[in-house]
Write a protein that binds this DNA or RNA. Structure first.
Length: 584
RNA sequence: GGAGCGGUAGUUCAGCCAGGUUAGAACGCCGGCCUGUCAAGCCGGAGGUCGCGGGUUCAAAUCCCGUCCGCUCCGCCA
């Protein structure tokens, strides 16, 4: 051992007064006054000021003079109160300082590519290339320490409730449904591949069959899809599953867990139970299944009002099975601002965006002249359109209308948004949705989600299948989907029927899911569970826009790691061992 | 696959729209002065592949085309 550390720099305090301490840390900053030198020494817990005077200790003074930023040093000295008037209330340790008796450089540092301080913004690429320097910065370090607390509270919560932590494999089987898999070639089984799990879904269900009753895991999941601010190819879930429960039990436990996290980590008391909205209602009011209800704007369905309209754009949209919806913005917008909104909508895929502005008691709009008196009356009544407000209309396929208007709602509603937290359960999802491209039904959640008991008969008829509702529930906080779960199918016959509706050939079902179907035949308890996106949840609680800020070593938008240069080419001999040829 | 924004000193940025002497600022770095600072201060100095490639032009950081990288979004994400 080099010598015992007395304590962390950032924790030096009252109790150390008059004592000699040994500290280790990084030189955060040196202030050389000629004759007296101040050194800010930093470690994981914070900063403390060291001081040395030339006349009192010329040897140590000389060492101090040679220090540069980010040198690693051992500092020995006596803790004393700072002279009156020189305290720094910005530091936790700002009322104390360490009068140096000995100072040793343990490691030098080159001049840094960017300063270890909060004030300077640094490009994402540099930050990731020198992640170890970025992680020295207060904010990023703080995020990771918060994440650490999050893990500990999560374990505490689940362990206290009798959950068993079980690890599931990372090298597992590719399942064609869902996201693209990351594949891992097998050496021992030539030509075959493992896949990294998109989630431990099947394993946790099988653990229920195995009788573990309550399982949880903080687990990495992998999905080979394009990245976003809230999406990384590897991410972490708090995953759990319970036997002998229904959706109320699971949702209740999730609420308890969220309540626990908010109180323990942020000191915030949240309101329960969380508000619930059906998928259909959410789409109707907000155009999305993950609305931020703190934005006080809703969409208006106007198709009925315009069903006889002579305005071509509207009538053609309706004729083609489309809808007309509108978003009202209770805010004065200039013509220029309106044009910007229109082009924003066009970038999202809208062909155009109609609008009406109420100014000086008149409807100012390029299209209102095409409306009948009744239509004008209908729409102003329905939307309660008032002076100074603007109404944006979109007529198109329902899906596109909802997409564009919900984005507009977020975009325009930002400054109208209320403070605080909006916890929301979205329930009553359809079990399936029709995939135009693939020409078949696909699961809205995953194929193991149970249908509502009373909707099971609807599975028998192609025409009623879209009406079948699932026993799934999504947790949305402030407009972000942070988790979801469901009661699962426990009957292999029903599970086979679902696969059939999904149009997955029988031999493919056997090959990919046969082990699950068989497991269900050996005494599967009723079960259900939930998975929480840990990265998103942590970022949300810290008020951050990107989950990169709560991941120690995240990837760029192109999926690379600037620190290690992953992914990278490998040796020819490695490929040969795996019988792999590439054309790249 | 698509749309948008960005790339100029170690860092953060200005300059670009409207081409024209030696490409600037702040911070950082190096040297000097300075005994109570804490984003210390003062004086001096060094530091540039204007992302890369091509084109237009007497002349390109600036205009055009292509390309790479970072970010945001759409598609994609059971």
């Amino acid at each position: 051992m080099i010598e015992e550390r007395s304590k962390y720099c950032g924790l030096v305090g009252e109790e150390d007064l008059g004592k000699e301490v040994t500290l280790f840390g990084w030189v955060h900053r040196v202030r050389d006054h000629g004759g007296v030198i101040f050194i800010d020494l930093r470690d994981r817990e914070g900063i403390v000021q060291l001081v040395v005077e030339e006349v009192k200790n010329p040897k140590v003074y000389k060492v101090a003079k040679s220090l540069r930023n980010e040198f690693v040093v051992k500092a020995k000295g006596r803790v004393r109160r700072r002279p009156e008037g020189t305290e720094n209330p910005k530091l936790k340790t700002g009322y104390f300082e360490v009068l140096l008796e000995d100072l040793k450089v343990l490691s030098e540092s080159k001049v840094l590519p960017f300063p270890v301080e909060e004030e300077t913004k640094v490009s994402e690429e540099l930050k990731l290339k020198y992640r170890y320097l970025d992680l020295r910065r207060e904010s990023v370090k703080k995020n990771l320490l918060f994440r650490h607390e999050f893990y500990q509270k999560t374990r505490k919560f689940f362990l206290e409730r009798g959950f068993v932590e079980v690890e599931t494999p990372y090298l597992t089987k590719s399942t064609p449904e869902g996201a693209r898999d990351f594949l891992v070639p097998s050496r021992l089984q030539r030509g075959k591949f493992y896949a990294l799990p998109q989630s431990p879904q099947l394993f946790k269900q099988i653990l229920m069959v195995a009788g573990f009753d309550r399982y949880f895991q903080i687990v990495k999941c992998f999905r080979d899809e394009d990245l976003r601010a809230d999406r990384q190819p590897e991410f972490t879930q708090v995953d759990f599953e319970m036997s002998f429960v229904d959706e109320e039990d699971v949702m209740n436990l999730v609420e308890e867990y969220i309540e626990f996290l908010f109180f323990e980590l942020l000191g915030i008391r949240i309101k329960r139970p969380f508000y619930r909205i059906s998928y259909g209602e959410s789409l109707k009011l907000y155009g999305t299944d993950k609305p931020d209800r703190r934005i006080p704007l809703i969409l208006y369905e106007l198709s009925e009002i315009f069903k006889e309209t002579k305005f071509k754009v509207f009538s053609e949209a309706l004729k083609g099975g489309g809808v007309i919806k509108a978003l009202k913005v209770p805010k004065k917008l200039s013509r220029r601002e309106i044009d910007e909104v229109v082009s924003y909508a066009q970038r999202l895929g809208a062909k155009g965006l109609a609008w009406i502005k109420v100014e000086n008691g008149k409807l100012n709009s390029p299209i209102v002249k095409f409306f009948s008196e009744e239509e004008v009356k209908g729409l102003t009544q329905k939307t309660k359109l008032k002076e100074g407000e603007v109404l944006f209309f979109l007529a198109d396929r329902g899906e596109l209308v909802n997409k564009v208007l919900s984005q507009l709602r977020e975009h325009l509603g930002k400054e109208l948004r209320g403070e605080g937290w909006d916890f929301l359960w979205v329930i009553d999802f359809p079990l399936f949705e029709w995939d135009e491209e693939e020409g078949r039904f696909v699961s809205l959640h995953h194929p193991f989600t149970a249908p509502k008991e009373e909707d099971v008969p609807l599975l028998e008829d192609e025409r009623t299948i879209p009406l079948v509702r699932s026993r799934a529930y999504d947790l949305v906080i402030n407009g972000e989907e942070v988790g979801g779960g469901s009661i699962r199918i426990k009957d292999s016959k029903l599970q086979r029927k679902i696969f059939k509706i999904l149009n997955i050939p029988e031999e493919e079902v056997e090959r990919n899911f046969g082990f699950l179907l068989e497991a269900l035949d050996y005494g599967a308890p009723p079960h259900g569970g939930f998975a929480l996106g840990l990265d998103r949840m942590v970022a949300l609680m810290l008020g951050l826009d990107s989950i990169r800020d709560v991941i120690a070593f995240p990837k760029t938008q192109k999926g690379t790691c600037p620190l290690t240069s992953a992914p990278d080419y490998v040796e020819e001999r490695q490929l040969k061992e795996l019988s792999i040829k590439t054309d790249a």
